[in-house]
Amino acid sequence: MEPIKNRYEFTVIFDVENGNPNGDPDAGNMPRIDPETSAGLVTDVCLKRKIRNFVEIFKEDEPYYNILVKPDKALNTKFTEAYEAIGEKTGQKGKNPEAVRAARDYICQNYFDVRTFGAVMSTGNDPCGIVRGPVQISFAKSVDPIFTQDITITRQARTTEDKRDTGETEMGRKSIVPYGLYRADGYVSAMLAQKITKFSEEDLELLWKAIINMFEHDRSAARGKMCVRKLYVFKHDSVLGNAPANVLFDKIVIGKKDGVEVPRSFNDYEITVDKNMPEGVELQEKA
C-alpha cells in the first residue's frame, strides 16, 4: 500500500448528554474541565483509545491492523515478538541500529495505531525505536462552559457482609454533564507518512470511519449519550500543504442560536462554515 500524498487537517464535533465523556482521576473522576473557563475537556488519549477500539472490532483478525496499545500483553513482549518475526536475536542489550529499524518497520507495517499515531518503543532489551505518527489530535474542548452535576445513586447489592447489617442498600455518586458540545482539531502529515510509517490511503479512509463511529461501540452508563455530529476534512493538494492549519480551522465557527441561553441539545447550536478555501485546499464533509 502506498503512503498518502496529501496533507490534511480535520475538525470533529461531538456531544454528550447526561454522561461523563472523560473522567479526571485527579478530581474524583468528575468530567474534565478547564479551571479558568469551566470549558469541558476530553484528552487526545481518550479519543485515540476510542479510535483504536473501533479499528480492533472492525478489522478483527485481519493482518496489518493489529493494535499495539491494548492490555493483552506487555509492550516489551510485543517488541520481542517483532525481533523474532524478522529473525533477529532477542534479549540482548546494545542492539544493532539496523535491527532496531527493521523491528520498527515491522511494527509500523503490522500495527495500525503505530502507523497512525506513532509510539515510544524504546523500552526493554528489544527496543523498536521511537515513531512520530502522521496523525495527531488535539484535546477536545466544549464550545460553552459545562455544568457538572453530581447525582446520588443507590445500590442494593452490598459490598461486604458487615455492611449488610446497616441496611439493604448503599449510596453512591455519579458525575454527569447534562449537555455539552465539544470540538477537537486534528492533523495528518503526508511527509511523516511517507518517511516513516507508510500510513496509506486505505488507512486514512479507515481513520475517518473510526472517528465517525468511535462512540457507536463504546456505550456505557457512565458516558451517557455520546454522538459524533460533524467531521470536516481539509485536503491539501500537496505533501507539505497549501495553507496554515489555523486559517482552515477558523473557517468553522460554532455558536448558540439566537435566544438560546443554556444549550441542552445539538439543535441549540448553529455551525457556520466558510467554504471559500485557499487555493489548493478542498473542504470535505465526511459526517
Rank of each mutant, 00 (worst) to 15 (best):
S175P: 01
I254K: 03
Q284D: 08
E205K: 15
Q136G: 00
K275G: 07
A85L: 05
I176N: 09
G124F: 05
T77F: 07
G224Y: 03
V143Y: 02
D250W: 08
K235Y: 06
L283R: 00
A190L: 03
Y179D: 12
A193W: 05
K5W: 01
K89R: 15
E161P: 11
D72T: 14
N125W: 07
E205D: 15
M277Y: 03
I137Y: 05
E261G: 15
L240E: 13
G186I: 03
I33Q: 00
K78Q: 12
E205C: 12
I67Y: 12
N76A: 09
V114N: 06
F112A: 06
I86S: 02
I153V: 14
P25K: 11
S200M: 03
Q194H: 04
V100G: 15
K286M: 11
V135Q: 02
Y269E: 07
K256E: 06
T159N: 01
A157F: 07
A221E: 14
L206V: 10
L204Q: 08
G94T: 07
I176T: 14
G280F: 06
C227Y: 09
G124D: 04
S265W: 04
K256T: 10
I211H: 11
R132C: 06
D268T: 05
A243G: 02
L204F: 12
I51L: 12
F54R: 12
P25H: 11
I4E: 06
A245M: 11
T272I: 15
G167N: 04
N53C: 05
E285L: 13
V247M: 08
P35W: 10
G280H: 01
G133N: 00
R155T: 13
A39G: 03
N242F: 03
S265L: 08
S220W: 01
